[in-house]
Amino acid sequence: MPLCKECKKFFPIKEDPNKGDCVQRVVDPRQAYYKAKPVGADMDASSCSSFEKK
């Protein structure tokens, strides 16, 4: 089962590597941006369509 921590978009928090940010690039019809959402390092990534192996 793939985990978030194995994903290129996962950035662990130094003080607590079990937690991190999922950072993704988005280009919408008007602007481009990077978005971040807190995720757990051991979160199941099997149903994540954005998963990219490190």
Binding site: Q31, Y33, Y34, K35, K37
Partner: peptide, 12 residues
């Protein structure tokens, strides 16, 4: 505030 999605727009 701890859990929401945040973003930074290009050039911002």
């Amino acid at each position: 505030l701890d859990s929401k999605t945040i973003f930074i727009t290009d050039h911002a």
